[in-house]
Nucleic acid binder design. Structure first.
Lengths: 338, 338
DNA sequence: CTGAAAGCGCTTACAG
DNA sequence: CTGAAAGCGCTTACAG
């Protein structure tokens, strides 16, 4: 059994077994060259004391830790899905995962905090890190893979084909006859946000529909950020007949706002999102959206990072995964075509 | 800028600034007794090199790290909600959070792995830990709080009033006229699973409805585990008119199975769950369930852990949070009362 | 087969 | 005000 107070250290084990810590270390790590009887004694002492090697001390001494890091600033459905994919890729791989989240979410360190944490983890604790939608460019002494990087980033990354996805959704709305299509954009700076907006713009342009800048609202991917924006769009006298939100979280929030305002979806308003989080299939009506299989993003990022750490990555530096339009009940032909 | 290769260490900074590492450490930690000009030089060197102190080295040396740990073995909606609550409680608290997830989910270490990881983190990296639905009893040299502990556990814990919640849901079904009520149990060993089953049993007994043991299926809280169980229950000639699953994930899966079998809910079958995860409100029909506000579980656990670490916890060792029956469309009067 | 010693990157008395 | 030295819990050449 473990002692009540301080954690059991290797010295405690060594003392009880009557050997040096070097020998205990050899037994713990299964190194050859320890006599059978010593092994037995040490094992017994370990058992008796409930000893587990300190992750920190081990990783400080070793160059390789077999621990991968992940930094994120939020825990939404998107994050949960990504994590599932990451864990799936790491399953049985020998790599454990450490997720670092800082508590000063809205504090002074908000901007660029991923970079700080990456630096604090890498080189000692982790062999490499995944950064999820970081607020800026990141770099590190150890391998790094970014899921949804900032625009223009050159670090290894995994991202969905956001441009194609957004184009598809807007063309779907145009095809239904919509001409006044509102857009709620994602967090500025992120490649994903930019590409989705670009898809929206290009699709309109290609269809010869002139863009009304008043129909573009600036969100942050955060569901909460969408409520006032959706309300503002829908309060307009010349309100849009459809709204495309750059994330499902924001689209779902738009659905709520529409309901509050007494607008029926898709009767009075069509709504589409981007992501295809689990909640979107269950919404009433089901949300038309773009599937970017977030677990796949996580899976690929982890797969890439593993290879990078082992030094045998052969693929491209930037992975772009296909997207797929998912049409559900939230989009339909507008009531009155203009 | 950081160097390309190995991470920048305190020695690098000391060398560039022309001082000792002791002085750099003082500047980094804002200690008094360093001349203004030295501070300036050191700060400049830190800036130039992009230095960040190694979390591992710092925590090995210091007794207090201001990092809290959390171990979990899964990332489902439940976990995501719990994490939101934890982050909320930690926001601006000065404590950061490290989540440890091991990759051998289905491997040899599966059982009791939380205990191993707790021991590896505590004493050095973390000041205390939260364990989410651990597979066994856990102990540690540093404070620990368990969310949904195993039955009979005596460590500090936070849990919902599972018995009351389950009783309420079953009484609701009985009140609608159901007499054959199936039950899909949660992971054996957990207090939450036991109490929910006990609530089911007692409510039936109290209503004078005899328990049919063939109507009890043994799940694991994992949504996937419920599919074959629900199918087996519904394939019976004397199938139940209602199924109460011990978690929403499993209940939602039961909804799917019913649909596959051509059974309408709540027409042919009533379904109820436990948890009230976000998806449940969006399901079609909405899922009748018991709200245990998982973010609250996380919030309270983090609050308790903070106090425990600071040594000023005044409350009880076991916190039990109230639950609330949420009636939605998935439950109704059975078609043919027996 | 085993141990003494050095060192991973820091912090903290202890001298000066 | 500043530095040399010890030490946090480990691992790994290096001797023996």
């Amino acid at each position: 059994m473990a002692k009540g107070g301080a954690p059991v250290t290797m010295s405690d084990v060594a003392q009880l077994a009557g050997v040096s810590t070097a020998t205990v270390s050899r037994v713990v790590n299964g190194r050859y060259g320890v006599s059978a009887s010593t092994v037995t004694h040490v094992r017994l002492a370990i058992e008796r004391l409930g000893y587990e090697p300190s992750l920190v001390a081990t990783s400080l001494r070793r160059s390789r830790t077999n621990v991968l890091g992940l930094v994120t600033h939020t825990f939404q459905s998107y994050t949960a899905e990504v994590l599932k994919g990451v864990m799936d890729a790491l399953s049985q791989s020998g790599f454990d995962l450490i997720i670092y989240a800082n508590s000063d979410l809205y504090g002074t360190y908000s901007d660029g905090w991923e970079q700080r944490h990456l630096a604090r983890l890498s080189g000692t604790l982790t062999d490499g890190c995944i950064a999820v939608t970081p607020s800026g460019e990141v770099r590190s002494g150890t391998p790094i893979v970014v899921i949804d990087p900032v625009k223009g980033s050159t670090v290894p990354s995994v991202t969905a084909d956001n441009f194609a996805g957004a184009t598809a959704v807007v063309e779907h709305l145009l095809g239904l006859g919509h001409r006044r299509i509102g857009f709620i954009a994602g967090r500025a700076g992120l490649e994903a946000a930019w590409s989705r907006e670009e898809g929206y713009r290009r699709a309109l342009a290609k269809a010869g529909v002139s863009l009304d800048p008043r129909l573009i609202a600036r969100g942050s991917f955060n569901p909460e950020s969408a409520a006032p924006l959706a309300r503002a769009l829908l309060d307009r006298v010349d309100r849009p007949t459809a709204i495309f939100a750059a994330s499902d979280g924001m689209a779902l929030k738009t659905l709520e706002v529409a309901k509050d305002l007494g607008l029926s979806v898709p009767g009075d308003l069509s709504v589409a999102g981007f992501d295809n989080i689990p909640e979107s299939a269950l919404a009433e009506p089901g949300l038309t959206t773009v599937d970017q299989s977030m677990d796949r993003l996580g899976y690929e990022a982890a797969r890439m990072l593993k290879s990078l750490v082992r030094g045998d990555w052969e693929g491209p530096g930037q992975i772009v995964l296909p997207t797929r339009l998912v049409v559900r009940g939230s989009t339909a032909v507008p009531k009155t075509s203009p």
